Structures are given as C-alpha cells and as structure tokens.
Simulated assay, not measured.
Amino acid sequence: MAGTTATERSGTSKGGGTLYRGDLGMWSWVAHRITGVLTFFFLFAHVLDTALVRVSPDAYDKVIETYKNPIVNLFEVGLVGAVLYHALNGIRVMLVDFWAKGPKYQRPMLWTVLVVWVAVMLPGTYFMMVRTVSDMFGGH
C-alpha cells in the first residue's frame, strides 16, 4: 500500500462538494475542536471581567451593563449551544475510546448527540430569548 493516499485506500468519500471530503464523523471532530476553543475563550474573558471587580467595582458594573443587550444575548445562546455540544460530544468521544463497542456504535451515538442537542437547545433558546424579545418588541 505504499504510495497510496488515504482516499485511495478507503474508497471515495461521501463529502460531496465540500473542501473536506470526510463524513459526518470528521465534521463532528472539527465542531468539537471549535466549540472547545470558543468555550476556552469565554472562560478566559469571564475570569478577566470577574477579576475586574477587585480592581474597580465601577468598571466592573459598566462591563456587566454592556452584557445586557440583545446581541450579547444571542452570543449567550451560541455559548450555551457550544458548551452543550462540546459536553455531549465529549461523552460520545469517551465512549468511543473506552467502551469496547464504542467504535461500532459511534455513528448512532453521534446522531443521538445531535438529537439531544436539538431537543435541549430549542426550549433553551426560547427561555433565553423570551426576555430579550419582550424587551425589544414590548410585552409584560
């Protein structure tokens, strides 16, 4: 098999017209890495803005006040989605790595992760956005 590429060894990919020719499992790997980096940067910013309270409580209050706008609320929904996906997919990755039957069931487990993610994100998004939408468009 020397001199053959991975695509030649494994046959044609299912990716279609995308730049990457991998399947859903590889996209889940990419999404896992991206959501991990996003979560890291959020935690870094959170530690910094929380530490600001010791330096200047007034500056801290101003920073916290900037977080109370609709755009930041959308970012919060995205953050919850990223953390939830990263956590659920992390469980799947551990099962694939440490459960003897994990590799065999990795695709059904990925679909389970996606279904659970959607099932949690739909009501979660509603409850996170209801106050922002009512503030923007009137309401009780």
Rank of each mutant, 00 (worst) to 15 (best):
T4R: 14
T4C: 01
A6Q: 10
T7A: 15
E8G: 05
T12S: 13
S13W: 11
G15M: 01
G16V: 07
D23C: 00
L24Y: 02
M26C: 02
W27C: 02
V30R: 05
A31F: 12
R33K: 06
T35K: 08
V37F: 14
L38I: 12
F41E: 11
L43C: 13
F44Q: 05
A45G: 00
A45P: 04
A45T: 02
H46K: 02
V47H: 00
L48Q: 09
D49P: 03
L52P: 00
V55T: 12
D58K: 06
D58V: 07
Y60W: 15
Y60I: 03
Y67E: 12
Y67D: 10
K68G: 03
V72A: 12
L74G: 11
V77Q: 08
V77G: 07
L79M: 12
V80R: 09
G81S: 14
V83K: 01
H86Y: 10
A87V: 15
A87Q: 03
L88D: 03
N89S: 11
N89P: 07
I91T: 03
V93N: 10
M94F: 13
M94L: 15
M94A: 15
L95C: 12
D97K: 11
F98G: 08
W99C: 00
W99M: 03
W99S: 07
W99A: 14
G102F: 05
P103Q: 08
P103H: 01
K104Y: 03
Q106E: 14
M109N: 02
L110R: 09
L110T: 13
T112K: 07
T112H: 05
V113I: 09
L114V: 04
L114E: 03
V115T: 14
W117A: 01
A119D: 04
M121Q: 11
M121A: 09
L122S: 03
P123S: 08
Y126A: 04
F127L: 14
V130N: 02
S134Q: 15
S134A: 13
S134R: 14
D135R: 01
D135Y: 06
F137I: 01
G139F: 12
G139N: 09
G139W: 04
H140P: 13
